[in-house]
Nucleic acid binder design. Structure first.
Lengths: 355, 355
DNA sequence: TTGTACGCGTTATCAA
DNA sequence: TTGATAACGCGTACAA
């Protein structure tokens, strides 16, 4: 019959079959401290053919280090941005011997709190919070004595953070459109009122992007038209669809003087915009130009979307590095702002252009 | 000054401040066993205002249960399918007090092996493997005495599995197209030769879909044209883009008698197909119909894509349930096959239709 | 109803 | 160069 509980061998068992003490086994495992070549070989052999696998929990208990890092994100299914950030954190962490444990908060403050509690119970060495819903939650983790880093949105002033340069990114998008000759440019983006902000920066992500839009128009001598500004949420957390982008764009197309370009501050919104334009039988970019933000879905859309890229890879990796630094005692909560850039694909052109 | 190492309080410390033994604290924590109301209240108070958080690792070490489940997937960034499955597993697990720990294998057998090892070291109670690259890896986990469940692809015969009905799903897609009147239908899908299979089923996922395509044509009395069959990979793991769908479709459009419909067996491929058609200035569905598979990107594409939906939510949840059953001693490796269905959106129509 | 004491699998200190 | 041995934080027989 099969060997029933194929229980994983323990250090002590290894020690016994190798005829040494657990201390010695531990030493060869960690290749640390003195150990005679003869014994090391003997132990190594037993380790190998017994398929020994250290029990990380026991080790963590003893060393008070879990080599795990918690990552809290909104629903990972709602926006590919979060998946990319998560993957980046994961990769960087792995390279440093860390495992990333992900928790979704679905945009719900209570759920976020619970997620942080669970992660704290598992004694994460550090915590990375992407899009924190409440400063209190972030500070809950700080109070527990853990290193915390924020990504994308600075909700609490008390941790290091890595964010993209939202103002400049939006300015670049506008410069691109205006440079192409557009003057009737609509803005489809997040609503500062619906995404309340009480953080350390003067303005929220949404306010920064909107401000960039306004200032870019002003500098170009173009009047801001309130009916060209459509604000709301980025996506439907349960549905995860581009619904809002569609609706806003439909509304814009109903205007008697419709815009020649749409600046959507999220690729998910832009995807909906492209759909609405298609349904209205307008061609992109011939009839209307569209530019997005994030560079997530962009490459998969039709037409391929010109968009403002955020360095998601670097942001995730940098967040991990900041967390490690904080763990190492670097206490200053510096904010790293990362550059964005426009990726030119096929969705923008001069107004009225007919290829 | 701040209290420096805000070390988390331990059970023993709680016991001391409450003037009871650790056993009693543990009892109120678990609300199990006898404990006088007076003492329970006293202990509860200390627990509360000391912000006690149990150390899950210590607890797991003692109980030999980690209440963690490992999930291995290909690169989570390469196909939204994996994200949805992961999210589903996570949700179901959470509802049962389990935490899901995700590992990406990037389609690499060695990496997958490492991921399994890491998860084993962390003493997962069970393991769910999505798209396992090698039976040997799956069996490595089985040998370690852990419950294992496979999703989407049955690579080893030795575990329970949950898969979508790929043959029927593909038949439904074809029935839809043929019912619309199409006879020149192209197939863009995974190449059985490039995605080798040595599992328990008679045919791999790719072979099943391809067989369904062939048989549907045969039953409709339509000759199979080899030049209408384009096989390859689904996506570029590093790039994650719809590159292959574009290339295959471009090739199809170069044919002197081009197809009137394209069946792409993955939404990521379909996204590329839509792009290629747009570049060729063909309208979908007026000039060419496109149907996808998965229902991931579908709702965000232009035009919104008709596709064969896989029940990703249910698949993830069911995989978790099977894992729990296996943990509970249910040893039979049954395979659960789940139904697919066509979601009608705007990308298919009768050939030559002009709205 | 409550407390004592041991062990889960490691690591690390201290002698030998 | 090696081995006892004591933690790490918790759960649980068993005794009181």
């Amino acid at each position: 019959m099969a060997t029933f509980p194929p229980k994983a061998p323990t250090l002590a068992e290894i020690a016994r079959s190798a005829g040494v003490s657990t201390a010695t086994v531990s030493r060869v495992l960690k290749s640390r401290g003195y150990v005679a070549e003869a014994t090391r070989a003997r132990v190594a052999a037993v380790l190998r053919d017994t398929r020994y696998r250290p029990n990380v929990m026991a080790s963590s208990l003893r060393t008070q280090r879990s080599f795990s890092i918690g990552l809290i994100v909104p629903a990972i299914t709602s926006n590919p941005f979060f998946v990319n950030v998560a993957h980046a954190v994961e990769e960087e962490a792995l390279q440093h011997g860390y495992k990333t444990i992900i928790f979704n908060h679905n945009g719900d403050e209570a759920l976020e709190r619970q997620g942080i509690e669970r992660l704290l119970e598992r004694r994460m060495d550090a915590l990375i919070v992407c899009n924190a819903t409440a400063a209190a939650n972030v500070e809950l983790a700080i109070a527990a004595g853990i290193a915390v880093v924020q990504i994308e949105r600075e909700t609490s002033a008390r941790t290091p953070a890595v964010i993209a340069d939202n103002y400049l990114g939006a300015r670049e998008a506008m410069a691109h459109l205006i440079g192409l000759g557009h003057r009737r440019i609509a803005f489809v983006g997040g609503d500062p009122a619906q995404l309340p902000y009480h953080g350390p920066q003067a303005r929220s992500v949404e306010e920064q992007r909107l401000e960039a839009y306004r200032e870019a128009l002003a500098e170009a001598g173009i009047a801001v038209r309130p009916d060209y500004i459509r604000l709301g949420r980025y996506y439907d957390i349960p549905a995860g669809s581009g619904r809002y982008g569609r609706e806003h764009t439909q509304a814009l197309l109903g205007l008697d003087e419709r815009p020649t370009a749409v600046f959507a501050t999220c690729d998910v919104l832009a995807a909906g915009a492209l759909q609405a334009l298609h349904v209205a039988r307008l061609r992109v970019p011939d009839d209307v130009s569209v530019i997005g933000f994030d560079d997530t879905l962009a490459g998969n859309l039709t037409p391929a979307l010109t968009t403002v890229a955020q360095p998601m890879q670097d942001m995730g990796a940098e967040a991990f590095r900041l967390a490690m630094a904080a763990l190492g005692g670097d206490a200053e909560p510096r904010t790293v702002t990362m550059a964005t850039w426009v990726v030119h694909r096929g969705s923008t052109a001069a107004p009225g252009a007919t290829r």
